[in-house]
Amino acid sequence: MAEPGEASALEEAEARAVRTRWALLVPAMLVLTIGAAGPLLVMLVYSFLEAGDYGGVEWVFSTDGWVQVFYAYDIFDEEWVAADAHLSIFWRSVKLSVVTTLLALFFGFPTAYFIATRSEKSRNAWLFLITIPFWTNLLIRTFAMMEVIRNEGVVNSVLIGIGLIDEPIQILYTDTAIALGMVYVYLPLMVLPIYASMEKFDFRLVEAAYDLYATRLRVLWRVILPLVKPGIVAGSILVFIPSLGAYVTPRVLGGGKNMMLGNLIELQFGQGRNWPLGAALSITLLVLVMVALLFYVRAAQRGSSGHG
């Protein structure tokens, strides 16, 4: 039989535990509020202001920033025309991000499979190797990539050296270079979540499927892929989002002319001196990511319910 005093003491201890738990959340909440929600709000406000002559904003309400996302003012004809340059940059960004995600999946999946099927001891060593690129600054890694693919670089020298080609292949400053660079940089973000799924995967199911007359390809398609799909979905999201907003890689490997959204936004806050447009573009990017995610997750769910 519990004393009444005891019961209330217990309740109090429980309440204290709950308070502590909430208190532990406070620092993270603060960081999120100041670091994420705050800047977003600033961006939203700035996108509806007038551009200052030397950068910055005038505190006057204006929708020019948003209009300029889609239309450009033709000073000769004195009329608004569709901003083709912006639209083509949007299109390139989406296209390159999709290609990057697919390539990362193509290379990342076998890598994750390889690691997951090693002995428990050597797995950690392989994972360690995967994370090594993270030790080096992104800019340095990108310049290293440049060194590999430029006309006088490793790839072209070797190809010319063994007589496969006479003239160097122009890779640097093309969309191919950007995609290559992004695949290289974001590959670990694909490998790690797929590996995490695969580590939980029961490889005895593979034997069970073989036993039931499934060939290798069918085992992959009908048993392995459906069960590691959460990892594939997570990896694809983790690669697609930063790809869409990539800044350093397209800047260095794409040269000046092959811009992506990140570069376009940077331009508005820099030389363009059009902060409201930059802010409007940033929010457009955010919306684009969210819409893409929505579609992707929907499609992924449909895929799995189609199986079940």
Binding site: E207, A208, Y210, Y213, A214, G308
Partner: peptide, 21 residues
Amino acid sequence: PPYRRSVNTVFQNYALFPHMT
């Protein structure tokens, strides 16, 4: 290979496919 033998196995842990009915 196993998929070309008319032999089937009941595994100790059953090894049923969890994503199927």
